[in-house]
Design a protein around this nucleic acid. Sequence first.
DNA 1: AATCATATTCAAACCGCTTTGGAAGCCTTA
DNA 2: TAAGGCTTCCAAAGCGGTTTGAATATGATT
Lengths: 343, 343
Amino acid sequence: MNLKDLSQHLGLSPTTVSRALNGYPEVNEATREKVMAAAKRHNYKPNTRAIRLATGRAMAVGHVIPIETRHEIVNPIFADFIAGAGETYARAGYDLILSIVPDGDEARAYREMKSRGNVDGVIVHSPRHDDFRIGLLHDIAMPFVVHGRATGAALPYAWVDVNNRRAFHRATDFLLDLGHRRIGLINGLEFMDFAIRRRAGFVQALTARGMTETPALMRAVEMTEANGYIAARDMLAQTPAPTAFLVSSMIMALGTRRAIEEHGLIMGRDISVIIHDDDLSYMQNGADVPIFTATRSSVRAAGRLAASMLLDTIANPTPTPATHLLEAELIIGQSTGPAPNRS
Amino acid sequence: MNLKDLSQHLGLSPTTVSRALNGYPEVNEATREKVMAAAKRHNYKPNTRAIRLATGRAMAVGHVIPIETRHEIVNPIFADFIAGAGETYARAGYDLILSIVPDGDEARAYREMKSRGNVDGVIVHSPRHDDFRIGLLHDIAMPFVVHGRATGAALPYAWVDVNNRRAFHRATDFLLDLGHRRIGLINGLEFMDFAIRRRAGFVQALTARGMTETPALMRAVEMTEANGYIAARDMLAQTPAPTAFLVSSMIMALGTRRAIEEHGLIMGRDISVIIHDDDLSYMQNGADVPIFTATRSSVRAAGRLAASMLLDTIANPTPTPATHLLEAELIIGQSTGPAPNRS
DNA sequence: AATCATATTCAAACCGCTTTGGAAGCCTTA
DNA sequence: TAAGGCTTCCAAAGCGGTTTGAATATGATT
């Protein structure tokens, strides 16, 4: 059942039927109701392909997931971020197109999306320091929103980000207040923008109290459980050992905890741990009482927000792009306590 | 730059240019080369929307992710499965459309995809026992491949699945051979088909040795770290306590290990653990020596396979759908050992 | 009653490609 | 030399909607 069939059935022209269904004012209310009823009765759904060609809009947004060809790691937060974004798109009648692209191929992928016209805009994931994609998308005039920021980008651009620097500053302060002086940082790879900012927050908090960072107590690794374990194990082997860890993800923290327990220590008593918690649905930080003290910010909510910002930009592009800095909440769990007496 | 422009530029008809670019035989080789060269020079990419309308193919496949409205859990294996599938689609020039759909809305979502024609086929995720989607998709003649199986489905359908029953049978056998007699099963929710099969494998292995299953040692929970912890903790509180656990996912197993260590036991010595390992990229089971003894099957490889099966079905629908049963490998890690002497 | 504004409807062009059904040109073949 | 067969190209008709520009009907105004 297509528009022509339906209009013949109604004894009306396709024009009128189309207008009736799309809420245009120049159609008699009585006719509109008849059309609506007939459309429902015959279960008429306009063909997406035809709409797209006729209107010139793709009614779809792209999420380009770069796969690091060396590591082939799929960032586990994508699932939740995209679930959040997907809710927004569904409501707006947009499709979500997922492109898995080897990281060398990204520029080509974006250009092709533009010239083939199968998306109206894109979400940029995992920005690096001074990320080339921002300039590129700007050049080809493809609407976009970045999940995260890319320090060093020359042009203004739309983004949603957690205040990573402040979150880690606060977390570090919290540990310092508890008397911890040797704090290990287990961070993500520091070509990722968020990791740079977290490190900065950590270092700033130390220097604000007249301390300096200890390179031996700082790690920047791919955020897996195994790496969280290795980093913590190695630092615990030092003398003096750290009395607290600041860990950049829940998954790494599971490895950190493993190293701690293997070392015969009790987390929250002998050693403190603060994590950053993306509030992943399959990786909840405890139910009632959080296991880990954490700086928390829902990546799913960020997905919802980024998506609706993108739809806004597509609908009416503005010269000054919107930005949203989300503050992480600091929630107290069972994994932190006063620094043990060095006696 | 569109086809018309390009053809005018070349002094040819759009027909000939289109045919030249699409490799049709009825065009002079010399002309074809000229056309190809001009297309490259002007960076001509045919408009996807127009191709789709003209050919009637969507050149896209849908992945419908049901979100359980009660739990709102996003299955963390999606990220890797979709990364695998995405590789296949990219090579074939297909788009991957991701639909996040509240679980009550699935039927409507599929019907709409069909009538709007924005996908040529779909992958069905997380099948339940006797899943209604199989009949539905069959009825509306939408090509599909199921990731997993749905026992009880009346019609034949295409699927890719791990031999879950055998995997858990073998894993249980392995534990029994080590002398374990009280084995705890920490399974996923048992309305999911894979969980039913794993349970069946477990029970069959026991009965094959004249044992019967102990309901107190079996849990079916949502597969989160916290639930893995709770299930293990509760079972360890029983007397006699289990000497081994069979755990349905890596993430749950992290919780299980936490309970074990909290209980003052050493995994691999005091208590054994076998897991099912989906070989997730961000959740590797150790590098050289696996942490957990595991039945392993790459969900990413399953994604690749499912995707290419789907593209095959779309290209030439066959009356007898293809099926692929993947065998999990049993890999020995550090988490298993002989049952401790009950002395 | 003629004029004009307004409300309602429609025919046809258009979006950018594919594909059908010729047609022209050139060789063969009888 | 006419007929038939290839090769190569093209005009035009889709695909299924939206949108422009015009036509018709209705009611109000003078």
